[in-house]
Structure formats: structure tokens, C-alpha cells
Amino acid sequence: MIDLLIHVALLLLFPPLMLGVINKTKAWFAGRVGPPVLQTYYDLAKLVRKGMVISDTTTWVFRMGPVVTLATVLLAGLLIPFGRSGAPISFAGDLILFAYLFGLARFCTTTAALDTGSAFEGMGSAREVTFACLSEPALFFAFLVLAKASGSLTLTRMLHGPAGGFPMSAVAPLVCVGIGLFVVLLAETCRIPVDDPNTHLELTMIHEVMVLDHSGPLLGVILYAASLKMFVLGAVLMHVLVPFEAGAAWMGWPLFVLEMMGLAVAIGVVESMMARLQMRHVPYLLVAATLFCGFGFILMVR
């Protein structure tokens, strides 16, 4: 019961902090002070209190988009184990539901963007659905490796490994999958080198350009859902990268929080060291991620 409460509390409260850590890391690299670590919370609080401006062109689809996205990401967050306790909801085949919930979010985000009738938001939608086609195979190769290594079809067992930990033969495939999943994480959460959350040129954006017309509470929902998505996908990645467990059972929670902080710093470092790729080069990166995960699969079943 306590584990469940901690899980839900972490899921609801922690994600905006990750954005703060990323921005702090980037500021540190650039030699700036940067915004406070809690800035995202302040932004959310401000947005929720504001009014909204809505385009005449739009319909109910525009308002549904952010809400559906938030609902799906929350549900997906309940399917993933955090720390060492199991996920609150776990059943055979939940991994498919997990992946397809993000599909539903994508459908609603992109249609909400198209509802405005803006060419920029059309571009964002086109990029979002195209790049997802390239990252989805990588995710499923990763699932295949995890299912094979753990002999299970529930996310909790797949990510925690079989009783007694992953076998030695699974280490090399897991490393490959870890690399691939990190790229998928960067792409799905729209970070450099795929997308730049701070850019100011509508032509070059993916995620930010789709939400140009959202404002006030709806924009807050989008921002919050985006941080949740990063948190949930990040939890998957950290389970793959740190597949072993140590210490007492309660140690799982602080370790998990530390892992997620570490991931945020790592994303910040990548964002500071790299430039955004040209849009036409993004597919190569995603195909490379798929190849890494596919290579891991071949290693696993050879």
C-alpha cells in the first residue's frame, strides 16, 4: 500500500523537477546561473491560473488533445515499475498497452495541432507521426529482448529481470538496447539532437510547434504531460541500464530518484554538447537506434 502511494506521488509530483534539473545542467555548462530548479512548477502554477485564447478555426478536437495525452501518460505511468516495487497495474501483455497508449497520445496531439489549420503545426504533426514510425520498431525490439531475457510478458517482470537477476548472456543485448532506448527517449521527448525545446524558429521544431496555439491551462497540461512522458520513458531506460538491485527494500526509492536525477543530468549534458541535427538527418539517427535494438535482439536469440 505504501509502495503504491509512493509510486503515485512520485508519478504526479516528480516529473517537472526533471526539466528543472536538465535546465540547470545546461545553464551550468553555459556558465549561467539559470532558472531555479523548481521553475517548471512555477510555470505550471502560473499557466493554470491564466485565461485562454483559442483560435476560431478550432473545434473540440483542439481541446481534447492535451487532455487525452495527460490521461494516457498517467495510465502508462501506472504500468511501469518505479524503484524495486512492482507496478500498481500489471498483467500479461501490459507492455503492448503501454506502447499503444503513447500511440493514442500521438494521435490526439497531432490531430489537435492540425485542428488549427496552421502550416507550422501541420509540419510538426507530419514530423511527429513520421519519426514515431521509426522509433516504434526500436521500442519493440527492446521489448523482445527484455521478454526473452526475463521469460515474461509483464512489464514489472521484464524490467526487474527474472528471479535472481538477468543472466550473464543478457548483458550485451541489454547494453545495445540501452543505447537504442536512450535515442528513442530523446526523440520521443523532443530533446536535442532531434528537437530543440528552446528554439524560437517555428520551421525547425517538432513538439513545440504543434502546441503553438495552445495557451493557459491547456498549455500547462501539455507541459505537465510532456514531463510525465519523459519521466515514464526514463524509468524504462533506467531499469534497462541499472538492472541490478542492492541493499534493503526501502533503498529502492531513493536510488530510483537518484537514477532519474542522473538521467536528467545526462540529458542536460547531451543537450549542452551537441547541436540539433538537420531535420533530414533525424531518420538516420532513429534507424540507428532501431539497428542497435535489433542487434541486441539477434545477440539475445542467437
Binding site: V48, K50, G51, M52, V53, I54, S55, D56, T57, T58, T116, G117, S118, F120, L212, D213, G216, P217
Partner: peptide, 14 residues
Amino acid sequence: LSRGRALGKAGTWD
């Protein structure tokens, strides 16, 4: 949340 808030109408951002 949106009850009682200012709800502006405008064209799409261009």
C-alpha cells in the same frame, strides 16, 4: 478550470 476565465478568440497564429 476554464469556467469564469477570460476566453479570447483569435485567428490561428501565423
